[in-house]
Design a protein around this nucleic acid. Sequence first.
DNA 1: GTCATCATGTAAGCCGTTACATGATTGC
DNA 2: GCAATCATGTAACGGCTTACATGATGAC
Lengths: 224, 224
Amino acid sequence: MSLTDLAVLGLLSEQDLHGYELQKRLADLSGTRVSFGSLYPALSRLEREGAVRAVDDVTGTGTAPLPATGSLAGETAAFRAALRQVRRGRRGRKVYGITDAGRARLAELLEAPADDDRAFPLQLTFLHLLPTSGRTRILERRRAQLAERLAAVEARPLDRTATRWRRALAAHEAESLARDLAWVDGLIAGAAESPEPAASVESATEPAGAVRPDTVTTNGGTTA
Amino acid sequence: MSLTDLAVLGLLSEQDLHGYELQKRLADLSGTRVSFGSLYPALSRLEREGAVRAVDDVTGTGTAPLPATGSLAGETAAFRAALRQVRRGRRGRKVYGITDAGRARLAELLEAPADDDRAFPLQLTFLHLLPTSGRTRILERRRAQLAERLAAVEARPLDRTATRWRRALAAHEAESLARDLAWVDGLIAGAAESPEPAASVESATEPAGAVRPDTVTTNGGTTA
DNA sequence: GTCATCATGTAAGCCGTTACATGATTGC
DNA sequence: GCAATCATGTAACGGCTTACATGATGAC
């Protein structure tokens, strides 16, 4: 299912970016580093598929992170017009934006069953892009997965070949799984009482149009 | 570095096995399931490389797990003689044993720096095959790796785009890493006082020739 | 002018997976 | 005889990595 696609589309759903910057932001965001050798081909492919498209490079440096207010609208019309034609702005950069098809694809990837353990952290990272029902579905699925694994570890027979290390390993795995399970339970509980008291904090830090996953609300309309 | 090779050689260092059984034992042992599509090619390759070699299929069922006493000797001499020549005994089975070269390769794999998180559990599973110095080296390396990651997670800026899920994720990751770190510290401490009081428990559960680490045995030619 | 960094891309290859093909053995 | 399981293997492909090649920009 490609973790790269998920990461790329997730990031682009928040802000237009070029490949190089994409990588840096991802590292900051989730500690995951995508290699360029996988990132650039992914971008090309996603462009061919119509999930992303090259946009004008309007930022001076490209490093401007999340223009909190609609700063895009802040550029002068003249400036924008000058860049309208150029696919690649300053330097050889190629800035990508997500398309509606890309958002659809992102929604798919976010909800796709994740066998790979590295998928869940990414799904969480972009969980706010889904409506509450989708969030719960993902969390419940993860919960079920963890529960299943825990059962498997506990059922595992730990036979006479068990060395001290194997016993320690089994015990630690069980403990970790149990803790992850409890953690996910907490997340589920938190997701259920969605517009929780602290919701205002969220909508304060992410004012209105910051993320804008049109498909959905992100924060259920600044409830609270 | 191939997790498959490590698992295969590790298991074969304890007992001669055929592919199908290898997979089952691995599932029991570590919950890891290797697909046949990766297992059989690996066995072929390892055989070509001289790390394993096909041996006579002396067991009646092949499923006899760790014949603690020389149950092999239970077969009639006639039966055994009939099978002596055949590379493949009952059924189309091909039973493999590890060679000296294979043991050397195993030692390499066990000590190899493990970037992949799935490698460490496997290394632990076969840690007893190494001398104390090697064990400590592996554990220390893992410790360092975890410490580094923990530092990275804690240094990660958690900027204004942080949603509730991202915050929860970062916190949980840090917590998990800290706990893993403490756990590994415990293992290191335990490894240091190697012949620890409970050592007798180990040698009681693994009587004599069961595991028999440093090079050697496997079955030493239908002994017993 | 030259060095470090930014930036994009391609090529080769590793490691693993699923799906498929084949056949032996045992139990009924 | 038939089905279930045991058992081995191959083919195709997916996703990711490293290493390499290339060039633009800005600092000094």
